[in-house]
């Protein structure tokens, strides 16, 4: 990783008291030159305090505004403090921060605006059948739309250039709930270069997935609508 690059790691977290300290510590160990900000999305537990104890800057949202809203807060923070690169990691310990440097290196080498960490390019990663089908369908759509092969468009482990995160920090440029395929397509539409690079992920160690219960069904409907909207959007 280039030492000239001012990097910010954004970790959105909602009630992640069980894992947040470990995630922040591992991130700081792996990326000592980077700053770490935890965006607590209206957590009702000790997440903000524990994140601060672990050495992260903490932006504490007064209410829960959703995963996308929390990430966008991190992008706004990065834009205000003039960072060059943002790396996004989940607060549940699913993403291995050791791979963040590879994402940034790929971004620099390929002159990309966004590099998405794919769990499927780096060996096996088990997901449920329903999710596998949803990912497969969305991969086909986003690959056909952008002309670039994507294997894991729902991954939240990403590196973004200043141009990309400054664009996404604008009011209506980022969805509140699921910033996935629709964001890749919207970025492609705005002529941002989006690529994938391999990363390692572990299955969510604790807590409840945001894709549990009936949420996958809602997710597929919601994402399909978002994709149609991106396709129909003018300008």
């Amino acid at each position: 990783m280039s030492t000239r690059v001012k990097t910010l790691v954004v970790i959105p977290a909602y009630d992640e008291a069980a894992t947040i300290q470990d995630v922040v510590k591992r991130t700081r160990d792996e990326m000592p030159a980077a700053d770490v900000v935890v965006v607590s999305d209206g957590s009702s537990d000790d997440t903000p305090r524990l994140a601060a104890l672990a050495g992260a800057a903490v932006v504490d949202l007064p209410c829960n505004i959703g995963y996308g809203g929390a990430l966008q807060t991190g992008f706004r923070f990065a834009a205000q403090h003039e960072y060059d690169v943002v790396v996004t990691l989940d607060g549940d310990g699913q993403h291995d921060p050791a791979f963040a440097a590879q994402l940034i290196a790929t971004m620099e080498r390929e002159r990309a605006d966004v590099v998405i960490g794919s769990r499927f390019l780096h060996g096996e990663y088990r997901v449920g059948v329903a999710r596998k089908v949803a990912i497969w369908i969305f991969c086909r759509i986003v690959t056909a739309y952008t002309g670039t092969v994507f294997t894991d468009p729902t991954s939240g482990f990403q590196a973004l250039s200043r141009n990309a995160f400054t664009y996404l920090a604008l009011r209506n440029n980022y969805p509140l709930d699921y910033p996935d395929v629709n964001v890749i397509m919207a970025l492609h539409r705005m002529r941002f270069k989006v690529l994938e690079a391999p990363v390692r992920m572990v299955a969510k160690p604790r807590g409840k997935s945001m894709h549990s219960g009936l949420k996958p069904i809602f997710y597929v409907v919601r994402m399909t609508l978002a994709i149609v909207m991106v396709m129909l959007k003018r300008g």
Binding site: V39, G42, A57, V58, V59, D60, L61, P62, C63, I65, G66, G69, Q72, T73, R76, F77, Q80, R171, L176
Partner: peptide, 12 residues
């Protein structure tokens, strides 16, 4: 959402 984000960033 806007208000929550602005408030949190200003508080920081």
């Amino acid at each position: 959402k806007e208000l929550a984000q602005q408030t949190a960033l200003l508080e920081y």
